[in-house]
Design a protein around this nucleic acid. Structure first.
Lengths: 215, 215
DNA sequence: TAGATTGTTAATCGATTAACAATC
DNA sequence: TAGATTGTTAATCGATTAACAATC
């Protein structure tokens, strides 16, 4: 029987658990209770237990959770124990930042190729020879990457997205400022920097609404 | 009398309204109903009216909303009609991307200086002469920037954050992978790229939980 | 065994949706 | 005026918190 659907709120908290578990694991701590996790994460112990129980009983009554085991379970749940072939579309500021960013590799995120168009095609930027975005369809058929990073101008993003979907991409990490339209079997995760900045200025101007570090 | 506290969920939708209003304004459309906004944004008409009414009655019965006026009101609410002096801390991949990113200027976000330490100090990177992060305290006293962008390694971020807070910074846009501790009168907005990537891989591995383009 | 802490059910809280009276 | 659509109240839904029995 399929487990109950896990809400977005829970999914967004998993990386946080993972991060804190990594921190306390490095301190050499073996076991942790929901109460202790509560005090370091700022979430309630009740919420932590509820969240974890969506995926199974990882704890033990009277003991708590084994740090290493719990971390490893969350790693599996989030799918970061696997390896992913990723391509980057667009070699502007954001594309380059993602290209060069270390630390993603640990999560199995392997950038295999980078695409752009015009003059940049054929040039080499930090170890990647930039490929032609107009030839993306053939590339997808041949190499079958799972993840595509869209770091393109707004006006071309949807068009490229459509080709990615047709080519069988499984997940899109979108940095362009628009809501891409795609079938619901292709996963979309947005990083809307402008919206994030607007949230910041909103709270700077409406401090009474600011929930503190809850977001 | 102070208006009721606006929830984070509402605040996070404001930039979306703003973006779509900009799009339909460019098409030359003068008026729009909550029903029409619903069909292009994917939100319910009811929610849109509820959201907007937190800030006042911008619409007119039987007519709808004036596109230009509503956009301008939301602009004011989010505080992007104002100008902000911003500094960037850390000149790695992400720091550079933010430095070079166009389009932020339209939101009144002006990068006045960029800081790093070690060899980079004194060098020039895209029009900015990199300043020494160790002299940040004096700088803050003198120049009084409002926003600081933290694009630093995890291990030094909290230390620099403390100095920024002491120096009277009003808002922090944090790209480092940690939960910064700061007083609640200083606004924090996080961009946790690793958490975003983990959300993507989670849904790629748990497609049944994927809510579609609702996030 | 006694104490601790989970897993899970029930209660509460808050956000979304529905409905409709007000009014342009 | 009649039709349209808002502003706002009420109903529903879902997520968080509290409580406690199960059990290590």
């Amino acid at each position: 029987m399929a487990r109950a659907r896990v809400s977005l709120a829970v999914v967004k908290r998993l990386p946080k658990y993972y991060r804190y578990l990594g921190m306390i694991e490095q301190k050499g701590i073996i076991r942790v209770s929901s109460q202790e996790l509560s005090s370091i994460t700022g979430l309630t112990a009740s919420q932590i237990r509820q969240d974890l129980n969506h995926f199974g009983g990882f704890g033990q009554q009277g003991y708590g959770y084994n740090v290493e085991e719990l971390k490893s379970e969350i790693e599996k749940i989030m799918g970061i124990n696997k390896s992913y072939k990723a391509i980057i579309l667009g070699c502007g500021n954001i594309g380059k930042a993602i290209m060069n960013y270390r630390g993603f590799k640990s999560s199995g995120f392997n950038i295999v190729d980078v695409f752009d168009h015009g003059k940049k095609v054929g040039t080499k930027i930090s170890d990647y020879e930039i490929k032609d975005i107009d030839k993306i369809e053939e590339y997808l058929k041949e190499k079958k990457p799972e993840i595509a990073v869209i770091a393109l101008p707004t006006d071309v993003a949807q068009d490229v997205c459509d080709k990615l979907v047709d080519g069988g991409i499984k997940g899109i990490w979108n940095f362009a400022s628009l809501d891409l339209k795609l079938p619901k079997n292709v996963v979309l995760e947005n990083v809307h920097l402008d919206e994030s900045l607007y949230t910041l200025t909103y709270y700077m101007n409406n401090l009474a609404d600011y929930p503190g570090t809850k977001n």
